[in-house]
Design a protein around this nucleic acid. Structure first.
Lengths: 109, 109
DNA sequence: CGTGTAAGGAATTCTGACACG
DNA sequence: CGTGTAAGGAATTCTGACACG
């Protein structure tokens, strides 16, 4: 109950025009939400943006919040909080693993 | 042990240039394999091709076979066979379901 | 058969900027 | 703040065709 792990969901392969079709947002809006650090598309060597399905979902969530009058700055804060939460979870997992390993090593020797 | 069901794998959102990068094939080759009915990209209203991750995987499999000297015509035949097999599986499932439903209905009444 | 390439045109994407409310 | 738009340029994609082995 923590990780999404479809290999396809995170792959950055969708160009901005397709993202526009998928989300109903304008390319202007899509680029602007990037400027506000809400999404982080990859770039090809030539500089064109590539989005993942995950990015598309995030954009739809942003669109919902914007419709409710939430400002990008607020959305940014929520996002940061969510990311910190994930970091803490990872750290906790790492530490539990460390403890378990320590125990096993004690037993084995 | 029958169906692939990631919602993302089948969605046609990748343009031909990205498919080229993903597969290492030339756009000429990618279009040619379509002409030979080995892949079936979608088209946008403007006519540009859109591929799914599934298409990308098929292309990689085609590339492997071509390297082994298999002609597109042969690959086409294999593909047709595989598709017929899937059809039969679906039919069998449908009939089993029908039988089961018939049984349940008998019991219920 | 399978692939490369040049040709011409249409559609896409990019950036930086001005406009508006 | 959030979004539209016109501007200029670069890169993408499309089709039909000729070339080659």
């Amino acid at each position: 109950m923590s990780y999404e792990s479809s290999p396809y969901k995170e792959k950055k392969v969708i160009s901005i025009g397709t993202v526009k079709d998928l989300t109903g947002l304008s390319v202007r809006q899509i680029r602007y939400y990037e400027e506000r650090n809400l999404i982080f598309p990859a770039r090809t060597e030539k500089g064109t943006r590539k989005y993942s399905f995950s990015d598309v979902e995030m954009l739809m969530s942003i669109a919902d919040k914007r419709e409710d009058g939430v400002q990008t700055h607020e959305i940014r804060k929520e996002l940061k909080k969510a990311q910190e939460h994930i970091q803490k979870e990872k750290l906790r997992d790492t530490m539990i693993r460390g403890q378990l390993n320590a125990h096993f090593n004690m037993i084995k020797r």
